[in-house]
Design a protein around this nucleic acid. Structure first.
Lengths: 238, 238
DNA sequence: ATTTGCTACTTGTCAGGCAACTTGGTTATC
DNA sequence: GATAACCAAGTTGCCTGACAAGTAGCAAAT
């Protein structure tokens, strides 16, 4: 009943491969910004696919802001400086190096976010953070691991920065790391008893934010993240 | 000859608007992860567009990792934890708040990148960074502003981290900020004479990286970025 | 020399259809 | 009766062909 998604055998669609090839040609500098792409007809003949498929491929590039199309005129390569969307692709999310790199970026973002939060948090921000801290304590008291509460705590902090980019990026990276843990945990032994240590670190972070001490908040966040990364590295041991 | 692209009048295509609506419905929680979307036929009838248009819209969502399609089975909403691609959309890149937020994120990423670079840089990394530093000095001596060399210098540093995510994100944010400056500069007076001050800050950063002093490197980078942000704020004054 | 209008070309959208694949039920077999 | 093979309906992937909307360049007219 429960199908275990196997992502491995997913054959890439024609449009996907074509989009990839076009992307490569642009990245390789074979085509300069402002230049016009071949017409859909020409691309279609050149790669031996139909025009709808070409349209789909170009649609992806357009969606990513790499090309701009104008009806009647053609498709043009966008100025790289005007790029309005950033794509962070995690190709192989079981790769340990990739996870390590993600964790590194997450640490950078979250440490700075905590610093900013200590600097700017209003009273309602502080109340929201404390509410999540309490919720996590309640979960611990109930004997639950409280992963959702943990996530909500961090979420409340990055929210307090008032910078949506911090929030979205942190959210994405956090999800990725937790997803990795969840899948890795299925293969290794369950670990417990650490939640109280985590909570103590959370408390330290909260205190610094409450004190409006940016430097101390950053230091507390860095300590927490370093410890978290160390706990995570247990999964790498195999 | 040089056409000034006006992005304003770009009428969103049917597929774009449909993709936007579907995205909203998913974001609003009207559809749960794992759930199946209506068939292309149904969506086509429901929104009064043809199936190719629906395919194009779903293709965008698929490309962003929001949905997963299986031939013969249908399209399913992806698990948010398994999201493999992150999109950072800069909707209005003349908005000052948005630029401010981008600069803030750039500062966080680049400061940490500089710290990591000081920690890990090999001899060849150091040589590459110095080469860009020298190139910038040469540009200054020639009386040029050396914006390309400036960018290359920072690029060499983030390269030294060995973390491609840092490199790509920093690259994107850097481009965005410089693009904003370039367009803003067209309306305000040209400013010069600051390049030597910038170069001095670069030299300080380089020295710390050469000394393999992560703490000092971060501090030097933060100083440089803070100053850069201040210079940038001149454009906000209007 | 400038403007107007026309024509070829390109993208946007549609209609219809076939192949590949999935799913669930049905039938045949043991 | 349980199990396995099979089949048919439904869905996505991809194609052909066509028309509408918009653009750009050229030619003719003023």
């Amino acid at each position: 009943m429960t199908q275990s998604h196997d992502f491995l055998d997913r054959a890439p669609s024609l449009a996907d491969t074509l989009a990839h090839r076009l992307r490569q040609e642009i990245a390789a500098g074979r085509m300069r910004p402002g230049e016009r792409l071949p017409t859909e007809q020409q691309i279609s003949e050149r790669y031996g696919v139909s025009r709808p498929t070409v349209r789909e491929a170009i649609g992806r590039l357009k969606h990513d802001g790499l090309v701009v199309t104008r009806q009647g005129a053609g498709a043009f390569i966008a100025e790289p400086g005007a790029l309005a969307v950033f794509r962070l692709d995690v190709e192989d999310f079981t790769n340990r190096d990739e996870i390590r790199n993600i964790v590194e970026l997450l640490m950078a973002v979250e440490a700075t976010a905590t610093e900013l939060a200590a600097q700017r948090r209003g009273e309602e921000d502080l109340a929201a953070i404390q509410a999540q801290l309490d919720a996590m304590q309640a979960a611990i008291d109930r004997g639950e691991p409280g992963v959702d509460e943990d996530m909500a705590f961090h979420r409340a902090i990055v929210d307090a920065t008032g910078n949506p980019f911090f929030r979205d990026l942190s959210d994405f990276l956090d999800r990725r790391v937790r997803h990795f843990i969840r899948t890795a945990r299925a293969n290794t032994a369950r670990m417990g008893g650490l939640t109280q240590a985590v909570q103590a670190e959370h408390q330290a972070i909260f205190d610094m934010i409450a004190k409006a001490d940016p430097v101390g908040a950053r230091r507390a966040a860095e300590t927490h993240l370093r410890n978290a990364a160390e706990r995570l590295s247990l999964y790498f041991a195999k």
